[in-house]
Simulated scan of single mutants.
Amino acid sequence: MLIETEKTPNPATLKFLLHRPVMERESRYFVNKEEAADSPLAVALFDLQHVTAVFYGRDFISVTLDSPSLWSNLESKIIMIISDHFDNDIPLLVENFEKNEIKDHDEEDDVILQIKDLIDSRVRPAVARDGGDIVFQKFEDGIVYLSMRGACAGCPSSVATLKQGVETLLKHFVPEIKEVRAI
């Protein structure tokens, strides 16, 4: 299996391009081994010392280390773990379902639907190129709450991306929005 790597704006996170689907629908983000219990691949990656986060995108996996200086020692080991996992046809999730991480709302009004559409069509593809994801959580009192995942979580430029990019875009199209916050 050919796996390419790509740097992200977050120096502690590296993006592993698989050139095949990883997740069919939503993304998954794990920040420790216990949280990753339903994913044999994420558990194997957390077994490596210094791995602090694993993110599954549509066609890539991002891995975050506790120190960017360790990439020279761990990059090839991570590639080998990912390659072995897919070469051996091990399921990505043991329950073989994809958890929808966008919280369901009983009655989604037009504003929420418009926000989700803008995030899905304009924001998520852009941040996926950098190895991350931004997921809608809720809209209340004019504030959009988003969850930063993958390379976006803890990235030095994520605050600027959120405020100058995402907030500006959403406010332009949805005048009901007063602010965008990360949770």
Rank of each mutant, 00 (worst) to 15 (best):
L113C: 09
Q114A: 12
Q114R: 11
Q114K: 11
I115C: 05
I115N: 09
K116H: 11
D117K: 15
L118W: 11
S121H: 05
S121Q: 12
R122A: 03
R122T: 03
R122L: 14
R122P: 00
R124N: 06
R124E: 05
R124K: 04
P125H: 08
P125T: 04
V127M: 06
A128N: 06
D130L: 08
D130F: 07
D130Y: 02
G131E: 00
G131R: 01
G132Q: 09
G132F: 03
D133R: 00
D133M: 07
I134C: 10
I134L: 12
V135W: 11
F136R: 07
F136V: 01
Q137L: 06
Q137E: 13
Q137R: 15
K138P: 01
K138L: 08
F139C: 04
F139T: 04
F139R: 07
E140T: 15
E140S: 11
E140V: 12
D141W: 11
D141A: 14
D141E: 15
G142E: 07
G142F: 10
I143P: 01
V144R: 05
V144H: 01
V144Y: 10
Y145S: 04
L146D: 09
L146I: 14
S147K: 15
S147W: 15
S147I: 10
S147G: 12
M148S: 12
M148G: 08
R149G: 07
R149Q: 14
R149D: 06
A151S: 15
A151K: 05
C152M: 03
C152Q: 11
C152P: 00
C152S: 11
